[in-house]
Nucleic acid binder design. Structure first.
Length: 591
RNA sequence: GGCGCGGUAGCUCAAUUGGUUAGAGUCCCGGACUGUCGAUCCGGUGGUUGCGGGUUCGAGUCCCGUCCGCGUCGCCA
């Protein structure tokens, strides 16, 4: 070892001892006669002092050449700092190292991304990603990666204790056109054929259940070739698990326990179990979204029946046309939003397809005031007021449109209002479940039913007869874990009966031949004594992001990709040698 | 693919309505200093304002195109 201690562990107990430290120059302060260096490593910072008489004049001269991020090995005696010179900001602030020997292990160019930058001086993300090796030296980044390490370790311990076996599944698999776009890998041995990187280990874990492993878990890398977002990367990590002889509540119960343990360990929070559950229908009705942020209220209120009775054409025609008129009461919203502010909200909901935003201010006498008020009788306005529990100072905001549009627009509006009106503590955490998702969604473009989750999801027992009778009303044994308005994980109970599986396939327009071609192995497996089974996958990156109070997923991934799915540090993806392409039988066509 | 924000010294930022030689802090270089911890003080170097075109007497600023980053819609079973 090149060192006897780390930069984070020395305190008064080592006073008088000779020690050797290694680390990076975090900062230096040159006083002419002597010089101070804050030496940094993963464990902390220790002040090392180059001062006479402890340090020879020759070593002091050498120390004058030190610069930021130089790598040092220093030997000396641990000393108590002079009276009044302790630094309470440092864990090692009581002591310092009086250097007798200095070895420069390596120099550094002037760092482009400074590891000790103040929060307002952090370089832009482009540079941080290009110089990720410097960015990752920043204590904030190190704290995050350690948090991630603890969370993953905690998960592994938890599932090991609960009898789960960790099994690795292939990364080179078969492409299944359903779902997200696949990342493809050409096969050299089978020219013209391609592997697909897994969007999730879904089919393999079901096979493991058929094989009798009973409880499977894996920290699995997954790949989806879709556009990126603040909370979406093309490759990401799932805590993936599957259980046999269980129903939805059993899986939920296991995850409840994990969430409570993580919250206790990492946040010091006592989460009350069981976590609250909301059905999908309820979530859409009350919040307009399947992953609502439950840290604040502002629930959506349906007013279609009242709207139908108004003379306001926008309202009455939407109501008559099968659409919905729904509203949010922004409590005391008139304090936050002027006419101009409301105009901005109107523009905002426009992004989500809403053609407008009708509004009323609630006056001191309780009457509703708006440019559109003349279209409503006083009695009807009072009914609106009562429906929305309107009080003086409130701002009532309405979207009238097709159901889907009202959901999207009002969900976005609710989220914006919650943040802008500071209705919740950004540090707080809320965990819940959304359950009983629809089995199917109708794809207007392709004129067919598509699986809401995936085609192996089991319908609820009581909805089996709806499979063919009324697919839209058929609900699934599906459940999503929701944290602060983010989908942190999702799972389902699977179909273990090949006949039901066939029915679902045919509803999705997957005929027998195609089913056999794509999923033949799964159907065959289901025919050989498949146990009832189900599971879930948690998005580890998102969980870390939320537990760490971050607002983007890149900050909790060591080497993330940019919005264009490139790696700023390595330059991936890149062109390859012609020879490589020839071996693979691939010709690149550039438009 | 659409919409929006951003790109100015190595780094973080400023620059009035389009108007003098594009500034500040930090870093870097040189000097001073025996206790600092955002050290301090003195001096200095450092600019293709992302790139290309246009309008104008004059462009960091306005227009068009383009590249890069971020946010978002579509997309993400």
């Amino acid at each position: 070892m090149l060192r006897t201690h780390t930069c984070g562990e020395l305190d008064h107990k080592q006073i008088g001892k000779e020690v050797t430290l290694c680390g990076w120059v975090d900062s230096y302060r040159d006083h002419g006669g002597g010089l101070f260096v804050d030496l940094r490593d993963r464990y902390g910072i220790t002040q090392v002092v180059f001062n006479p008489p402890d340090t020879s004049s020759q070593v002091i001269e050498e120390s004058k050449l030190l610069r930021a991020e130089y790598v040092l090995q220093v030997t000396g005696r641990v000393a108590e700092r002079p009276a009044g010179m302790a630094n309470p900001k440092l864990a090692t602030g009581e002591i310092e190292l009086r250097v007798t020997r200095l070895i420069l292990l390596n120099k550094s160019l002037t760092p482009v991304v400074s590891p000790n930058a103040n929060s307002q001086d952090i370089p832009n993300e482009e540079l941080r990603l290009e110089y990720r090796f410097l960015d990752l030296r920043r204590p904030t980044m190190q704290r995050t990666l350690f948090l991630r390490d603890r969370i993953v370790k905690e998960m592994r311990d938890y599932f090991a204790e609960h009898g789960f076996i960790d099994v690795e599944t292939p990364v080179l698999g078969r492409s299944t056109p359903e779902g997200a776009r696949d990342y493809l890998v050409p096969s050299r041995v089978s020219p013209g054929s391609f592997y697909a990187l897994p969007q999730s280990p879904q089919l393999y874990k079901q096979i493991l259940m058929v094989a009798g492993y009973d409880r499977y878990v894996q920290v699995a890398r997954c790949f989806r070739d879709e556009d990126l977002r603040a909370d979406r990367q093309p490759e990401f990590t799932q805590l993936d698990l599957e259980m046999s002889f269980v129903d939805a509540e059993d899986v939920i119960h296991v995850i409840d326990g994990l969430v409570a343990r993580l919250a206790r360990q990492e946040l010091g929070l006592d989460v009350k179990l069981p976590l609250p559950q909301l059905t999908y229908d309820e979530a859409m009705e009350r919040y307009g979204h399947d992953a609502p942020d439950l840290r604040f209220g502002l629930e959506l209120v349906d007013c279609t029946d009242l709207a139908a009775r108004s003379d306001f054409r926008v309202f009455s025609s939407v109501a008559a046309g099968g659409g919905r008129v729904r509203a949010i009461n922004a409590k005391r919203g008139t304090e936050h939003y002027s006419r101009r502010g409301i105009d901005a909200l109107t523009d905002y909901v426009g992004q989500f397809g809403a053609k407008g935003l009708a509004w009323f201010r609630v006056e001191q006498d309780g009457t509703l005031n708006s440019t559109i008020a003349k279209n409503f009788s006083a009695d009807l306005l009072q009914e609106f007021a009562a429906r929305l529990h309107a009080e003086p100072g409130d701002l009532l905001l309405f979207v009238a449109d097709q159901w889907k549009v009202t959901c999207k627009a009002l969900h976005a509006l609710r989220t914006k209002l919650g943040a802008e009106m500071k209705l919740y503590d950004p540090q707080s955490m809320h965990f819940s479940w959304v359950v009983e998702f629809p089995m199917f969604d109708y794809d207007e473009e392709e004129q067919r039913w598509v699986a809401m989750h995936h085609p192996f999801t089991s319908p609820r027992d009581q909805d089996l007869k709806l499979l063919e009778a009324d697919p839209a009303r058929c609900r699934a044994k599906a459940y999503d874990l929701v944290i602060n308005g983010y989908e942190a994980g999702g799972g389902t109970i699977r179909i273990h009966d090949p006949h039901i599986q066939q029915k679902v396939f045919s509803l999705l327009g997957i005929d027998e031949k195609v089913a056999e071609e794509r999923f033949g192995f799964l159907l065959r497996a289901l025919s050989y004594g498949a146990p009832p089974h189900g599971g879930i996958a948690l998005g580890i990156d998102r969980v870390v992001m939320l537990f760490g109070g971050m607002d983007n997923i890149r900050d909790c991934i060591a080497f993330p990709k940019t919005q264009r799915a490139t790696d700023m540090m390595t330059g991936a993806p890149s062109l390859v040698e012609l020879k490589q392409l020839r071996e693979l039988g691939i010709k690149v066509v550039v438009d």
